[in-house]
Simulated scan of single mutants.
Amino acid sequence: MLKRSAILASTAAAAAFGFMGLTATPAQAIDNVTCRDGAGYTEIFNEKRHCFANAGRADVWITNVYEIRANNNNITIWYRYGTGGIAQTQLNKNQNWTNINPRITVEDIQIH
């Protein structure tokens, strides 16, 4: 009986260790934050101003975009014009993409 208990205990310990080894680390996630002038957040403009902070990548769907400001971040955005294919561009810290015409739909954003 003692041998069986020891086997069960070691099996349980191995299973617990295995689960600990498979536990994912928290993903870096962009936060959609309240816009504040001078805060340095990445900003995307359409009928309103959308602001993002922290490194990571996020799926978004922001239509009718006419301006993007990287501010204190290096960013990559994935976008499309109308029903066309997806394209991507990078903006480095303090770069702006202004007067976007025709306007675009931003589908993904990554802050590096």
Rank of each mutant, 00 (worst) to 15 (best):
I30K: 04
N72S: 14
T63Q: 15
H112S: 15
Q88M: 10
A27Q: 14
N46E: 03
G56I: 04
K3D: 02
G82P: 07
T105W: 01
K3T: 05
P26K: 12
D37I: 15
N64T: 05
F19N: 07
T34I: 14
G38Q: 07
L8K: 07
T83W: 01
N54Y: 01
T25P: 01
Y41V: 08
E47T: 08
F19A: 11
A24Y: 08
A12G: 02
R57S: 14
K3F: 02
I75W: 01
E43Y: 11
Y81R: 10
A13R: 00
N92R: 03
Y66T: 09
N101M: 01
L22A: 09
N72Y: 05
G38S: 06
C51N: 08
Q110M: 12
M1C: 06
G21E: 05
S5L: 15
F45N: 12
Y81L: 07
T23A: 09
S5Y: 08
I104L: 01
N99G: 02
M1P: 07
N54Q: 03
Q110T: 14
T83D: 13
I86D: 00
T34F: 14
I7G: 00
F17G: 05
Q95V: 00
A16K: 04
Q110I: 05
N96K: 14
P26I: 04
S5R: 14
C51E: 11
